[in-house]
């Protein structure tokens, strides 16, 4: 074959691989389009899969041209990152484990290797071996790049969701002039307790609140750590001039707290949020008077 005339003149096996990738870009991307990684992401059109494959092959050729098959930071891998990590992320979202994504990426290597070996029939075995090694390293680095991206995306997602949860779960509601409430929902770990405390103290200052109601109806477990956090929040609010009322302690939780030996001693508690509000209003001098049947009050 005439192309083979150039073989051996470039010296480096990596560049050899680069030239091969350009030469066989079409066949490689056609074969990749049938591999799970591409097939499951481009479900609508095979042409798109082939097109994405071509872009990746081209980028890999660029990396090989510059002799950087070892280097995950090579410029060419930026494109690989964009293309393949999108697929990796799609696979992760679909519930595939990192190991499966890794296998998927690894499955892209054999078709290329077969083409490479078939492409160099008359070359010395040493060169064939060096080229195959360079290709293996290149594909290994690509796998690393994809996994790195997939992992960091996963971590970023978890971190984002964690922060969102923290914020979503701690709205401070103004119930009345001078009365704010936080309905706590879910697990009160140390990080969330910190957010709750800060949000509540800010609201106390901003709204000149005299009463802050912490409603724990939505907190499934009150153990010594949660109790400790609640008491710290109460103490801090007190320093800011606001009295805390803890409401929503369900009967099972009340019994548990007592048996656990926790002393909520100085904390004012009320059964429900409504009771807590009534208490705070009363303390502020704005009593709620239930309309009695036949009374003068309007409905």
């Amino acid at each position: 074959m005439p192309e083979h005339a150039s073989t051996g003149q470039h010296g480096s096996p990596a560049r050899e691989v680069g030239a091969f990738l350009r030469r066989r870009a079409e066949q490689i991307s056609q074969r990749w389009a049938d591999e799970p990684l591409f097939r499951t992401v481009f479900t609508v059109s095979r042409d798109e899969a082939v097109e994405a494959g071509r872009i990746v092959v081209d980028a890999l050729a660029q990396v090989a041209d510059t002799d950087q098959v070892h280097d995950p930071d090579a410029a060419g891998f930026t494109v690989v990152r964009e293309q393949l990590s999108r697929m990796g992320a799609a696979r992760s979202r679909a519930g595939f484990t990192t190991a499966q994504v890794s296998n998927d990426v690894d499955a892209l290597r054999p078709p290329v290797e077969n083409l490479l070996v078939a492409d160099l029939p008359d070359e010395p075995t040493e060169l064939v071996r060096d080229c195959t090694t360079a290709l293996t390293v290149l594909m290994g680095t690509m796998r690393l790049v994809v996994l790195e991206t997939a992992l960091s995306e996963g971590q970023a997602l978890i971190e984002r969701q964690r922060l969102q949860l923290m914020e979503v779960a701690t709205p401070v509601i103004k119930l009345w002039d001078g009365i704010v409430a936080v309905p706590l929902i879910g697990t009160l770990d140390s990080a969330r307790s910190q957010v709750v405390m800060e949000t509540l103290l800010e609201a106390v200052v901003d709204q000149h609140a005299r009463f802050a109601i912490l409603d724990i109806t939505g907190v499934p477990t009150v153990d010594s750590l949660v109790a400790q956090h609640l008491m710290k929040t109460v103490a801090a609010a007190r320093l800011m001039g606001a009295e805390c009322v803890v409401s929503g302690i369900r009967p099972a939780i009340a019994q548990t707290i007592v048996q656990l030996g926790l002393d909520l001693g100085t904390v004012i508690t009320r059964a429900s949020l409504a009771d807590a509000l009534a208490y705070a209003l009363h303390e502020l001098g704005a009593d709620i008077i239930n309309a009695t049947p036949g009374g003068a009050g309007h409905r």
Binding site: T221, A252, Q255
Partner: peptide, 17 residues
């Protein structure tokens, strides 16, 4: 029952921590 369940979960929370 709810009470025994809550107690055991709370104990588990303490011991696990």
């Amino acid at each position: 029952g709810l009470v025994e369940q809550t107690k055991l979960v709370t104990a588990a929370s303490e011991l696990a921590r």
